[in-house]
């Protein structure tokens, strides 16, 4: 028998008025997995992640994270997860150190813990000299790595990363994925969304989302075998009939509201 999944959904749906953003989603993710959501803008990735994080209430269906129900135990979920939202959400007008201090504080870390973590984190990120610079003036790639580290400050066992590498160059993206692998190697579960095809290849397992629904789910290797195709790109085109979503103008606009 398999151990209990850390992220679990059964017939999960979210409607905004008459519009269904997430439609009958079912999945289960085991501990230590790197699980990906691949989909174009507006496919419903953010909405699904927000439901797992307790930020949105599902319209129907079941969802459990770390064994806690998203309807009734959102508070317990929040203690266990890290979350990096799609929009860069560190304070631009605070320094690097002040951001770390603040997010450490709202997770209830003590001063000593915060100082210790700050030092270690800045060393890892090679940001020691930038400790007192305003976050605003960091390059985007560094901002994203900083945001990831901040999301991991309280040592969560599951992290949700919503398009963490949006808008940066392939080299920065590869560096970022190296960190994701490190996180998973420590036994933590990573739940990541992307609309980059090359990143889809990096995931342990992934689901392809289209118009709120999961239209395919599996390991990249298995999927390639199943369809007899060489890359995720080809599979995506085959299934959705579109080119790489990132290259297309947004047909359905992405949202950053809540």
């Amino acid at each position: 028998m398999q151990p209990e999944p850390v992220v679990y959904a059964e017939h999960l749906s979210k409607r905004f008025g008459s519009f269904t953003a997430v439609d009958d989603l079912s999945l289960s993710v085991q501990q230590g997995e790197i699980f990906g959501f691949l989909g174009a803008n507006g496919a419903g990735k953010t909405t699904a992640i927000r439901m797992f994080c307790g930020l949105l209430t599902p319209t129907s269906g079941i969802a459990r994270v770390a064994g806690f129900d998203v309807h009734t135990e959102a508070r317990k979920i929040k203690q266990t997860i890290g979350y990096m939202s799609q929009k860069f959400s560190l304070y631009e007008d605070l320094t690097v150190a002040q951001n770390i201090e603040f997010y450490g504080g709202i997770y209830g870390l003590s001063r000593a813990e915060i100082i210790d973590k700050t030092n270690r984190m800045l060393e890892e990120l090679k940001l020691e000299e930038r400790r007192h610079t305003l976050t605003r003036s960091l390059p985007l790639g560094w901002k994203q790595r900083l945001a990831l580290s901040v999301a991991m400050l309280h040592d969560p066992s599951i992290v949700f990363l919503d398009e963490p590498t949006g808008g940066v160059d392939p080299i920065s993206r590869r560096n970022f994925w190296r960190i994701i692998y490190d996180i998973a190697a420590n036994g933590k579960t990573v739940f990541v969304t992307t609309h980059y095809m090359d990143e889809a290849e990096y995931c342990g397992r992934l689901s392809i989302m289209y118009q709120g629904r999961i239209i395919e789910l599996g390991k990249p290797g298995e999927l390639k075998e199943k369809y007899g195709l060489k890359s995720m790109q080809e599979i995506f085109v085959h299934l959705v009939g579109e080119t790489e979503p990132a290259d297309k103008p947004n047909i359905i606009s992405s949202t950053e509201n809540g």
């Binding site: 994080c53 930020l55 203690q79 939202s85 929009k87 959400s89 631009e92 997010y103 709202i106």
Partner: peptide, 12 residues
Amino acid sequence: TGTLEQILVSPV
């Protein structure tokens, strides 16, 4: 700015 979302996902 979107920072509220990041705060709401913490146990405050």
